[in-house]
Computed example of a mutant assay.
Amino acid sequence: MIAANGRAGGLYGVAPEAQLYGIKVMDRDGNGRISDVIRGIEWAMDNHIQVLNMSLGDRNYNAALEYATRKAHQKGMILVASAGNDGERSGLVDYPARFPWVISVGAVDQEMKRASFSSTRGPVDMMAPGVDIRSSWKSGYRTESGTSMSAAHVSGGAALVLSRHPELNGAKAESYLKRLNKRSRVRKGYGHGLLNLSPLSE
């Protein structure tokens, strides 16, 4: 979804020329520890990663996670995280998406309406497709729904902005990405609006 290059008739990602690094911080069941997530962030900083996609979240605040994400942002990294899938039950945006220096992403369906599962209570910076998304998987392709899919779209968008405008640093590229979204019709609860990358192809 982020960097698939369409080989052998496969999918094209949002930024097919981007270099993608997989930083494993979860087990095969999608569970993990905050300490492992922090080590992943530190690895990304040490290896000069420009965009960090965090399709993960936790309802509980963690001071060490706050420090790690803030430090990564200060070093110029663009951080993107899924808002969460609590929908109307509690709706609170997860951490690390809730930190103000992390781009929090909610999900919309094919009609660009907010997905029923998408968390909204808290800072949602933008919305992106997250319902029935076909993406590359370790054994081929798989269709999934969730704000994790939405966050991946935005991470690809951030990579695309950096490739089109290499003169921009992390903070300026992040602001540019958000301004692109304002070209779309902003709805209440959509933050800066729907992910809109069409101007990059103009």
Rank of each mutant, 00 (worst) to 15 (best):
M1G: 06
I2N: 02
A3R: 01
A8D: 15
G9M: 05
G13A: 10
V14N: 01
P16S: 08
E17T: 12
A18V: 02
A18H: 03
L20V: 15
L20W: 14
I23G: 00
I23L: 15
K24F: 06
V25L: 03
M26E: 05
M26H: 04
R28E: 15
N31P: 00
G32R: 02
R33C: 03
I34C: 03
V37A: 10
R39Y: 07
G40H: 01
G40W: 02
A44K: 05
D46T: 04
H48W: 07
H48V: 02
H48R: 14
L52H: 06
L52Y: 05
D58Y: 10
R59Q: 13
N62I: 04
A64W: 12
L65F: 11
Y67F: 10
Y67N: 11
T69V: 11
R70E: 13
R70Q: 14
K71I: 01
A72N: 04
H73T: 12
K75L: 14
G76F: 01
I78L: 11
L79P: 02
V80P: 03
V80L: 12
A81E: 04
S82H: 04
A83Y: 10
A83W: 04
G84Q: 05
N85Q: 12
R89D: 07
S90L: 13
V93P: 04
D94V: 03
D94G: 03
Y95P: 02
Y95C: 06
F99A: 06
P100I: 08
P100N: 15
W101A: 00
V102N: 00
V105L: 08
D109P: 07
K113A: 07
K113F: 08
R114C: 10
R114P: 03
A115Y: 01
A115C: 07
S116W: 13
S116P: 00
S116M: 14
S119G: 09
T120H: 12
P123M: 11
V124A: 05
V124L: 10
M127C: 10
P129D: 05
P129R: 02
V131C: 07
D132H: 10
I133Y: 06
R134S: 04
S135N: 03
S136H: 09
S136Q: 04
W137Q: 03
W137D: 14
W137K: 01
S139I: 10
Y141H: 03
E144W: 03
G146N: 06
G146I: 11
T147K: 07
S150T: 10
A152K: 02
A152R: 00
V154K: 01
L160P: 00
V161R: 01
V161G: 03
R164M: 07
H165W: 14
P166F: 12
N169L: 11
E174I: 00
K178L: 15
R179K: 15
R179D: 15
L180Q: 02
N181G: 14
K182M: 14
S184C: 05
R185V: 15
V186Y: 05
V186M: 14
V186G: 04
K188D: 15
G191V: 04
H192N: 13
L194Y: 12
N196K: 09
L200M: 10
E202N: 09
